[in-house]
Design a protein around this nucleic acid. Structure first.
Length: 592
RNA sequence: GGGGUCGUAGUUCAGUUUGGUUAGAACGCCGGCCUGUCACGCCGGAGGUCGCGAGUUCGAGCCUCGUCGGCCCCGCCA
């Protein structure tokens, strides 16, 4: 094995082209592949920028050619030689450097490599647990390197953009205070304060509000947040937010800043220009038309309410659901007429996951309708439904009758399934949407109290404040979510900035005065010392990168992600610790 | 907490329906040959705790029970 001995790279493995022919060059990188022809040996040399073919010729450089025999895949080598035009007809159009090659004069083997458990290339079929165990090899694959480079560019652009607008990047603590509400906290025991625990932040929410009180005016941070909840394809226990907060602003001001930032990112990364403001939709409208608060507006198949048409229907499933305060809504599956009975059964399984008891359907055939409901519905009812649903021959109308929340969730999910099945979703389209006018509170029947829909520091709409006493669920929040292609990529609000209003909210949430003082005393106090009106937003960086990279797993955009059981297969975290460590922390384990 | 799915050479899989001799294939790897390949080619070879543990059986990769792990989903994620 060899040392660098003062060698310096003249460029990356993507740096050489026709214009360098005749020059000397030094390249270093990993061996992608070796092709030994008995005489001449070719090696594809790879670094994060690209690949260059280097050539070992027994006549040109006998010593190096001999040494090339012992080189294997993923060896780390350095080569010095002359840049040559490839012989006539030998150029490789698939390679950026394909017109040239490096005729090696001297080679250094900088390190050897064992056989890797999988090939270091984009197209592999390897199980994800193997990839995660050898994440350092997985990350060597160009497809992942490109994503992390994309992530870097986006972060740099966010910093430039916000800096230009006068935002200050200020760090907030990672060891902080556990607070009620929201997700489960990750806890860290305090050695110096036995029996006490820090919590890792679910977000820097309170610190950024305090910074506004302190007069920093405009803050941002690209920051890790921690939530000890179950994982999903788009959820990790530690994830990154682009977090920002502004003073002396209203909703429009925050939305404008964020919109401008996102537009710049898409301009640069996707060469897409959004000349108009992002569309807006109220929460109410989103729920009623799409069944979710983050609608994918790239396709139709909207939900249609037919409750009034079937209120007195002979079909008991409909009538009884309505009687219990529920509703009946439908989706016109345009062109679903070709679906088989078993495919429709599969669709029924989709809605059942969300609590629907079944999926009713009416198929519009050329010779009339086909439906399990046919004998329960009158001619008039069917005609009315067909008109309301704008159904024509070849369509299938699907219905769910249940409580409004079940109808929304199940039909919202069915809509997405149908959109995919019918190929209605254009993957090259990027539909942004602001969802506004969220309810401030929702009722948690399990806990028997109101909980904040966004968080307890969100300001109510000024004109709704009086409703707090009379009809709390009707109070709208000064909150806004940014939705992209049916994914929530950001959310924010104008915050409460007076102690009185904050106290009122805590009261509504069933947080007593004593508890409020204990958990949020510092915030309450701070609000009494001249807190300016302020508001902000946080964007989910990981999800944004997922969409930009076109990947369906959040693990593809995080260098060292965790498994669904929140473990790291590379380091084997979390792990047991030494008894002395526990003793220092005055912690005893319960092995029951 | 619940539902689904997967686990067999380094990797991806077949074999499980119907238990039965020595568990196969491809890619990768190793060796030999080959001076213009770029998925190089040709010849040869090595490589297995069938996730783990019990059980049924004359006999288990295959059947039963348990357990561990990966992935997707519901709940959860202010």
């Amino acid at each position: 094995m060899d040392y660098l001995d003062g060698w310096k790279r003249t460029g990356s493995c993507n740096s050489l082209n026709k214009s360098h022919v005749g020059q000397q060059a030094v390249l270093m990188g990993w061996v992608q592949r070796r092709r030994d022809h008995g005489g001449v040996i070719f090696i594809d040399l790879r670094d994060r920028e690209g690949i260059t073919q280097v050539v070992f010729n027994p006549e040109y450089a006998p010593q190096s050619h001999k040494k090339a025999h012992e080189i294997r895949n993923e060896y780390v080598i350095a080569v010095r030689g002359k840049v040559c035009l490839r012989p006539e007809g030998m150029a490789n159009p698939n390679l950026a450097t394909g017109e040239i090659e490096l005729m090696v004069e001297e080679v250094k083997i900088l390190n050897q490599a064992k056989n890797t458990p999988f090939q270091i290339e984009d197209q592999i079929d390897t199980a994800e647990d193997v990839r995660l165990r050898y994440r350092y090899l997985d990350l060597r694959r160009p497809v992942l390197q490109k994503i992390l480079m994309l992530r870097h560019r986006v972060c740099q652009q966010v910093r430039r953009y916000l800096d230009q607008l006068g935002f200050l990047e200020i760090e907030t603590p990672v060891l902080t205070k556990s607070t009620p509400e929201g997700a489960r906290d990750y806890l860290v025991p305090s050695r110096l304060n036995p029996h006490s625990f820090y919590a890792l932040p679910q977000s820097p929410q309170l610190f950024k509000q305090i910074l506004m009180v302190s007069g920093y005016d405009r803050y941002f941070q690209i920051v890790k947040c921690f939530r000890d909840e179950d994982l999903r394809a788009d959820r990790q226990p530690e994830f990154t937010q682009i977090d920002l907060e502004m003073s002396f602003v209203e909703r429009e001001d925050v939305m404008q800043v964020v919109e401008g930032m996102v537009k710049e990112i898409f301009q640069r990364e996707k060469q897409l220009t959004f000349s108009n403001p992002f569309p807006r939709m109220t929460y109410q409208e989103a729920m009623s038309r799409y069944g979710v608060d983050r609608p994918d507006t790239r396709f139709g198949l909207e939900l249609v309410d037919i409750t009034d048409l079937v209120r007195n229907s002979q079909f008991k499933v409909f009538a009884e659901a309505i009687q219990k305060g529920g509703q009946v809504k439908g989706i016109n599956g345009q062109g679903c007429g070709s679906l088989s009975r078993s495919e429709i059964d599969d669709l029924a399984k989709v809605v059942q996951i969300y609590g629907a008891k079944g999926l009713a359907w009416i198929k519009i055939n050329p010779d009339g309708i086909q439906s399990p409901l046919k004998k329960f519905l009158s001619e008039e009812e069917i005609a009315n439904i067909k008109t309301r649903m704008k159904a024509k021959v070849g369509d299938v109308i699907f219905f769910v009758a249940d409580a409004p929340s079940v109808v929304a969730a199940s039909l919202g999910a069915l809509r997405l399934t149908l959109g995919q099945k019918l190929n209605l979703i254009d993957p090259n389209r990027y539909d942004f949407l602001w969802v506004t006018d969220f309810p401030l509170l929702e009722y948690d029947s399990q806990e028997g109290r109101y909980v904040a829909m966004h968080h307890p520091f969100t300001a109510p709409m000024v004109e709704d404040i009086s409703l707090l006493e009379t009809d709390p669920l009707k109070v709208r929040a000064q909150a806004y979510d940014l939705v992209l292609n049916g994914q929530e990529i950001g959310g924010g609000s104008i915050r409460i900035h007076t102690r009185q209003m904050q106290a009122k909210l805590f009261d509504k949430l069933g947080i007593g005065e004593e508890e409020a003082r204990q958990k949020f005393g510092f915030l309450m106090d701070a609000l009494e010392y001249g807190a300016p009106p302020h508001g902000g937003l946080a964007l989910g960086l990981d999800r944004l990168i997922m969409i930009l990279a076109g990947t369906s797993s959040i693990r593809d955009v995080i260098a060292f992600p965790k498994t669904q059981k929140a473990t790291c297969l590379m380091t084997n975290a979390p792990s047991e610790i030494r008894p002395e460590q526990l003793k220092e922390l005055r912690i005893k384990l319960d092995h029951s």
